[in-house]
Design a protein around this nucleic acid. Sequence first.
DNA 1: TAGTGGTCTAGACCACTGC
DNA 2: CAGTGGTCTAGACCACTAA
Lengths: 261, 261
Amino acid sequence: MTHGEQGSQVPLESARSQFRQLADLIRTDIERGTYPPGSRLPSEPDLGDRYGVSRQTVNNAVQILRSEGLVRVDRGVGTIVRELPVITTMRTTRQQERDAGQARGAFQAEMERLGLNAESDVRIDEVPAPEDVAGHLGISLGETVLARERRMTANDIPVQLATSYLPMDIAAGTQLAEPDTGPGGTYSRLADLGYAPVSFIESVRVRLPYDDEFRLLAMDGEQRVITIRRLAQTESGRTVEVNDMVLPAHQWELRYQWHAK
Amino acid sequence: MTHGEQGSQVPLESARSQFRQLADLIRTDIERGTYPPGSRLPSEPDLGDRYGVSRQTVNNAVQILRSEGLVRVDRGVGTIVRELPVITTMRTTRQQERDAGQARGAFQAEMERLGLNAESDVRIDEVPAPEDVAGHLGISLGETVLARERRMTANDIPVQLATSYLPMDIAAGTQLAEPDTGPGGTYSRLADLGYAPVSFIESVRVRLPYDDEFRLLAMDGEQRVITIRRLAQTESGRTVEVNDMVLPAHQWELRYQWHAK
DNA sequence: TAGTGGTCTAGACCACTGC
DNA sequence: CAGTGGTCTAGACCACTAA
């Protein structure tokens, strides 16, 4: 009664917490187009008045929508409805071959399919191998490896970090140490050098982002990242690449296809 | 000054929010064994006094640990340190064959490897095909399909829900409609019937659990689920199974292996 | 400077648990 | 019944943005 006279126009059941129900209401409004992509939600005090709840309760509701990637908060500006579609990445025996024949990578191809403008930075470094990477590459602990760090964006929104580790005895002085690995990418160059990867293992996990990932991926609130560690092995069983990928979980779908036998 | 005299023994920087730093402190204590698995954290008021912060701030910190699966809250009891290890599930061309030869499924095998006691319920139903399932199975909208719903536990902790949809023209009256599908499981029976699956596609996503999933998986706080939809196809290209899996994200690692060519 | 969301506090009421 | 966490509120201060 103290404030907001239009309070509780929408009946809230008592079974579920108010902030969850409020999140549902706002989500529905977004899906119906009441708040179209790119527009701003009413401010938290406004929403509080409108629904007859405290600002803290509104804030809790908005946290849910943020964690789903439905909205994004611009500090000092407001809460904006997002519009980036879900990106699908595909891993297949056959696709793998197709990708190898392409001038551009799988990421570029998917972005084009979605009509998004894909860009990526590359930073190349020689670094001491992280302990677990050293283990996979069969390298002693202090030894240096080639690290190719990439950050990929779609329509200027960061969508993936990837760090590829390659043994120096293979990569040093080759095109693998150049920003542009040329047609077919890393795996084609490895093949040229006599280390064609034929077997791949990917380990997928979900977790909270680290601070640097949070910043580099422009993440928001309680969003999660998907982490993928890919190992690429040659016919002889040597692991010639460790690739650590980090993806905002809400904007990706991973697709794996394989064949029995 | 009003309360808790030991307040702020641990210096908190001002850059990051108090509740995130507090979460880090408690997490460290858990990892160091100060709060061993199975034990209870001090109550939220206690922690508030100890660190000189409000109960709400403690609550926010605990939310983070819950979402990571590090602790679990028993209503009316307290916050308990968890101990379920991360479960790895493996998908490989070769593994697939190996599994087919086993009396027990892949899930059982992994549980045994981890020394966990695996159990699972099965419920079998004939239901109208959900719209997207009908599309995949090439069935008209109202038509019924066989639904095999499973709920799997490890040491009595629920770790996976799975619903397998099979076309009635294949499954009706066969062992596929029985609780126990026999040696080799569903895929072996499909093979016996002349519908051996040879190609598999899995689509992986991460999201907040629905209410029923939240309950059935005994989830806690802001935890996420991994959803996997698997399509199994025969040589002729017919999709003979749609399998929807739901897994608490914090306790699983998905592993995919494949071979080029 | 006014408005935005981030965060914190003190206090409150609730449902649930175990004694 | 006392203790637990879930949730809500009113009020506050902050950093940041845009006008």
